[in-house]
Design a binder for these strands. Structure first.
Lengths: 164, 164
DNA sequence: ACAGATTGGTTACGCGCATAACTATTATGC
DNA sequence: GCATAATAGTTATGCGCGTAACCAATCTGT
């Protein structure tokens, strides 16, 4: 691949990252949330209570990030952390009632953000996008295969199987 | 759009951001660079010396980010900041010789990253990607139209015109 | 010529990311 | 049962992002 093509792609990914995140930030701010926190709330809403290690795995990020985010969301009353009954190292994270309500609000603005993001693109392209993006992600993912769990769940369509 | 579709898309973008950036970080680390800095070096290599305001515009990020990055890259000897002759507020940023050599190294690994990223995708899809991604970016970009300069340069193909 | 607006750059701070290091707990193999 | 390895979570630190605020220089309109 020529450098110009490579740069076009890498820059396109970088700029999308920046702008999508900034737009998400603007939408989340009235709810008192920062980008990244919404993913945690939505995960709990979708899957139910889980320990922090499971959260970091599901979100595709490292444990300290989850520690910090859960701490703040707990301080805000949106989640609750309780010791796991069978493992003294672990704590169960679950949504409080206010967390559940917040997650519903996040869902609303999430739909708005996605619609805004794909405006003007053909429906066929839109339908293929998550799969394509997840393929790209899988290609550069040097973490354990368990991260594929986050990918599988973020895909509305089946990701193409990749021999790995 | 249903929430599941919206979530699939937004999560796909989020995960690609995370993983692509992490992979870039791993490739840039041996050169002593952090993700984001490479964009600055490549911009200077491509366009030549410019003031910091132009850099922040070209990179699509805010001035303090450029201030911090230029400070560090200058400390590392890769760039030089000199007062602009016609404007006492401004400083011209340019690559040093070591910065030029570094930019060449970045170009190598940038090609490798892009190839890795698109592995397994059909060539037609790969060719369309920057354009599609830039459309998405343009859709969620709430900044001034001048940011479109960064988009135009990151596109190997013409972005579809968007009435705005 | 001058006041107000705009621009360039910086500093302070907050954020989610990461890595490294650490402690405590649990699991595993002998 | 015990030593070692693995796991859960935390703390400290660094990073590029952002916003807010600030100061100085320049531009613009009267």
């Amino acid at each position: 691949m020529e450098f110009e093509q490579a740069d076009a792609l890498n820059q396109a990914i970088r700029l999308l990252s920046l702008r999508h995140r900034a737009r998400a930030a603007a939408l989340l701010a009235p709810l008192g949330l920062h980008p990244g926190q919404e993913a945690l709330l939505l995960e709990l809403a979708r899957t139910g209570p889980m320990i922090q290690a499971q959260l970091s795995e599901a979100l595709g990020c490292e444990p300290p990030s989850v520690t910090l985010m859960t701490r703040k969301l707990e301080a805000g009353g949106h989640i609750r952390r309780t010791p796991a009954p069978s493992d003294k190292r672990a704590s169960i994270v679950e949504l409080t009632d206010s967390g559940k309500a917040l997650a519903e609000q996040v869902k609303q603005l999430w739909c708005a953000l996605a619609e805004e993001t794909v405006e003007g693109l053909p429906a066929e392209t839109v339908a293929e996008l998550p799969g394509i993006l997840n393929t790209l992600t899988g290609n550069v993912d040097t973490r354990r295969p368990a991260t594929q769990a986050a990918l599988a769940r973020s895909s509305a369509v089946r990701s193409p199987s990749k021999a790995s």
